[in-house]
Computed example of a mutant assay.
Amino acid sequence: MKHDNKPHKKIKRKLLDKYRLVILTENTFEERLSFKLTRLNVFVTATLFLIVLFTGTYGLIAYTPLREYIPGYSSTALKKRAMALNYKTDSLQRVISMNELYFSSIKKVLQGDVSAVEFNKDSIIESIKVEASEVDFNPSLEDSLLREKVSKEDKYNLFESATAGANFVLFPPVNGTISEPYSLEKKHYAVDIAVVQDAPVKATADGIVIFAEWSPTTGHVIIIEHSYGLISVYKHNSSLVKTQGDLVKAGEVVATAGDSGEFSTGPHLHFELWNDGYSIDPSNFIDFN
């Protein structure tokens, strides 16, 4: 049985039949231009033109600054600014977290909500002896040569290299009688020194004021941070001379003693010393008389 190929031949003939496109002058009908075309050529040419048009439009929008004027697209500068703000926000969150931890520790110092840590001196000494016994103290050849070189340098630079270590001395904040001593059992991590009203309260060492505020229980409070991880606390003052952020010298007046706060029973100074987060007895280092 033979298939009828006439429709296919008819379509092929329509696609391949040649036509002439003639451009004439309207008045004289003079031929100006003429083109030989087929329907297939016209279809292929139109398709290629549309592909080139779409590709060019996409490239113009995607890879040029013109895309910033199209709704839905964000500019490069805006993206950079958003990233910078994101990094800055993350940094600020970290700073806020550190400040919250810092103020939380200061709050514990003010409220006396801390626990003393007791060390077993004998166990520490024994552990040091065990560790020392395992170390070979015989100097190596490199160490001997280095020691000899340093010894020769020190021999001729005695006055330049021999510098005395800094002596860290605590200055008594006030002079008076201790009305209540330091006591771990009573959770009294301070010494109370009885003084006259408005007696000058002085900084016990060089440092920076990290807290200077008033609280209902302890009155006017000032806290100073010193070197070597030392913090001094002065409570129940009648007034404060320094503010937060001020630099102070040892012996410089920072407040006036008084009777402020609910926990005060008379003019006195409630003085605390903290070293690396642990309370220490101020009377072991300072003579208040």
Rank of each mutant, 00 (worst) to 15 (best):
K242V: 06
A212Y: 02
L50T: 15
H226R: 04
E160D: 10
N41Y: 11
K235A: 10
D113Y: 06
N167V: 12
V233W: 04
A162Y: 14
V44P: 05
I210V: 06
V169Q: 08
D4Q: 03
Y156K: 11
V44K: 14
A77N: 12
D154V: 09
Q197I: 07
S238E: 00
I286K: 03
A194H: 04
K9M: 13
D17G: 10
L40C: 04
L158W: 11
T38R: 08
K202T: 03
T218L: 09
L230N: 02
L230G: 01
E185Q: 12
A164V: 12
D192W: 00
L184C: 04
V254S: 01
Y102T: 04
V130R: 14
A116S: 09
V174I: 02
F35V: 08
E30K: 15
H226W: 04
I23W: 06
S179W: 03
A203V: 01
A255W: 05
A84D: 14
N157R: 11
A199L: 06
T243F: 10
N275L: 15
V52M: 11
S127R: 15
K88T: 12
I208N: 08
K88Q: 14
D281F: 02
T243A: 13
V42T: 13
K235G: 05
N41V: 10
S144V: 09
L24H: 12
L141P: 04
F168K: 05
K18E: 15
N275W: 14
R39N: 15
L78A: 15
N86K: 15
I128S: 12
G72K: 01
L48A: 13
Y189K: 05
A46K: 11
H220V: 00
I208T: 14
D113S: 11
L40Y: 10
E185R: 11
M1W: 09
T76D: 14
K18W: 05
A190G: 01
A164L: 13
A84M: 11
L60I: 08
V221Y: 01
A250T: 02
I178Y: 02
N5I: 11
I61Q: 02
S227V: 05
I208A: 06
P267F: 05
I224R: 00
K80F: 09
Y69L: 09
I51A: 05
P71Y: 03
I231G: 01
K108Y: 06
T28D: 06
L240C: 00
P200R: 01
L60A: 13
L78H: 11
L33K: 15
K2W: 10
A190N: 03
D4E: 04
A46G: 13
